[in-house]
Design a protein around this nucleic acid. Structure first.
Lengths: 103, 103
DNA sequence: AACTCTTACCTAGTAATACTAAGTACTGGA
DNA sequence: TCCAGTACTTAGTATTACTAGGTAAGAGTT
């Protein structure tokens, strides 16, 4: 399963961020687990987030929390929205190809 | 696109082999290109084939050709068939997850 | 105060995999 | 003879997800 995730996880995390307008790593991890990615580990999500930050697809804002350490809140910026749209286009294309091959 | 292929390509190649009962690397590459994987390069397919061989998912038979060097013909063995079925299960699962996340 | 649990983030190292960019070799035709 | 098409191989690299830790803040318990 893990190899199938390659390249997908980035788009998935971007989509999760977009779905909630604004969210942070710990919450994203839990969301993914709830959605069925049982094996996703915190560390993996954080490396994706750092990558998205480095690629300038998200904005980051650190804010204190009353129940633990400060949270880093992520939002998509314009480049992130475009990147996500492109991800879904590529994904749809891939799904199409695989359907063709299967038959 | 290339990152999205990770993990998928192995299943795709297995399926292409199964579709034609028996085939060889050069032909698989051309089939994939025809099917829309424009950017697939020979070298990539051959490394996948060697991997499938190493994992014991295929049988190999070298036979002479009248139009060039000898061809290595691949067939799925039982393990290959099972592996391919498992690939499609995982793929279906992933597609489901992504549909959920998108909405 | 010391402890534990939950929350929250970070990172060094590793494995898997696809691509780059070559190279080798066989056959047939110009 | 040279070239184009056929056919396979491989060393090196980049990307990416996981392993397996570690750090730290707050709240409640003892």
């Amino acid at each position: 399963m893990t190899e199938l995730l390659k390249g997908v996880l980035e788009g998935v995390v971007l989509q999760v961020i977009q779905n909630s307008q604004e969210t942070y790593g710990y919450q994203i991890t839990n969301t993914l687990i709830e959605l069925g990615f049982q094996d996703i580990v915190e560390g993996t999500v954080y490396t994706v987030l750092l990558r998205l930050e480095k690629k300038n697809l998200v904005t980051v804002e650190k804010r204190k929390s009353t129940v633990g350490p400060a949270r880093k809140f992520y939002r998509l910026n314009d480049a992130g929205v475009a990147y996500l749209a492109d991800f879904w286009r590529k994904w749809a294309f891939l799904v199409d190809q695989l359907v063709k091959i299967k038959h």
